[in-house]
Design a protein around this nucleic acid. Structure first.
Lengths: 242, 242
DNA sequence: CGCACCCTTGATCGTTTTCAAAATGTGTGG
DNA sequence: CCACACATTTTGAAAACGATCAAGGGTGCG
């Protein structure tokens, strides 16, 4: 109740220009903060939610990174998304009332817990928030379409190049270096996401390094030749939306 | 203004239980009809919208079928979705204000043209409509995740089996036969959607027929052994949502 | 009826998977 | 700080799956 609350508010959150507050007035942001009070910290590998969990919250990533995945009927999983700060998790659970897949922290991460019913009624009163929610849904759909393009038509080489560029540009958008970043996910998750095997990913990373396109030290990546990498990807650098 | 209007209204539309009216009262449906006045008929191959077109409308499919596709930077396309009556097209255009991909009729089809700004303000007043819009967005995301699972992990055989089951169950949901239906899309589009070549699709269809799983006459498909097909697909029959 | 397009079928080629093993990295407790 | 155990990553060789190239057969529309 005191002013000493350690809870970070939307107003001073480092990802507010990527998250729900976009387009909101100071006053509206204050109203939004009633919804975003609850935070959660997760350790590496800890699940944010599991497949089948009832849908009650959305989660806004404040820091760290996540993978989300769906589980097929025969038990095998497909990583569908790597999520970075400012992005929302759980949107696909609304229609059925339960999470169709799970989400798991790839490193020490923190999220805002957003009770959806509260968010929904606030959005009903604040058109700018409504628009932002539509926008996030829509953006998500667009990104999934791009992911489909990647999986459907491209060679293994193309896919990995595209992923590296994608992640690089998303980090850049958040104010980090575009050329040097950490690939927080294990090779196996990358492979799964790209529809490949861990061995193929490993071979490709080695090859990219030999060709002087990137430098690799463990999970740390330095992009040395963005142009060449973009050509391999077959998609221009502007892989991200808006 | 007269009662003789030939325009089909939501109230008596054959897909109203799959479309925006879900959950709406009679009164709300009448208000919705002000937004859904405009219809459009398309012939086979005619585009509903093109990549880059400004976003102003959503389109609700009343009859027929569509493919939607995105176009990569180097010009090649990926079919991302086959859309059937009751489904909405254009949702992924909201965030950027322009359609990132195109949609094209696969047969003589008809759609409701929904000016989004009107729909948006009506939804602001009608919570049930708001919920239905969220639900459709969310459902769409879930379906794309399932498509990713398909493309990422499965063999060609699995993918085709899953597509057949998916389409079958979607027709069934609309009141048509689950075991006999028309594959309105050319083989090449199926192949593209599944990340395969037309030749592979053709071979697989032949093989499924030889194995007694399906019967094929041109684009007409009869499913003879749903169980076996489901096993091949690796996903249970309930491929669709909710 | 003829032409164009779509679909089928066959043979070969290439990429990616699979199987196997070694090397590197990570975390733990001594 | 080091040593050990375990997981992840890298690398190699062989096999498989689907792509590509090529030709022939249907089907529908003018």
């Amino acid at each position: 109740m005191g002013k000493l609350s350690t809870a970070v508010s939307c107003g001073n959150c480092s990802v507010k220009r990527l998250c729900l507050p976009v387009g909101l007035s100071e006053e509206d942001i204050q109203r939004l903060e009633h919804v975003t009070r609850k935070k959660k910290i997760l350790k590496t590998g800890e699940p944010l939610f599991r497949a089948g969990d009832p849908f009650s919250n959305l989660y806004a990533i404040r820091s760290g990174s996540f993978k989300s995945a769906v589980i097929g009927a025969d038990g095998d999983t497909q990583v569908t998304h790597f999520a970075l700060p400012g992005e929302l998790l759980g949107l696909d659970a609304y229609s059925s009332g339960a999470h169709p897949g799970y989400a798991e922290a790839l490193e020490e991460s923190s999220v805002c817990v957003l009770p959806f019913t509260q968010l929904e009624s606030l959005a009903q009163q604040v058109p700018a928030l409504q628009k932002q929610i539509y926008s996030i849904f829509s953006e998500e759909l667009k990104q999934e379409n791009e992911a489909l393009l990647l999986l459907g038509k491209r060679s293994a080489e193309s896919r990995l190049a595209a992923l590296l560029i994608n992640i690089s540009s998303r980090y850049a958008r958040r104010g980090y270096s575009a050329s040097e970043f950490l690939l927080t996910m294990p090779r196996m998750d990358i492979a799964n996401y790209l529809g490949l095997t861990a061995e193929t990913v490993s071979r490709l990373i080695s090859r990219f390094q030999k060709q002087g396109l990137i430098r690799v030290r463990g999970r740390a990546i330095t992009i040395l030749d963005l142009i060449a990498l973009s050509e391999l990807a077959g998609t221009h650098c502007s892989y991200e939306g808006s």
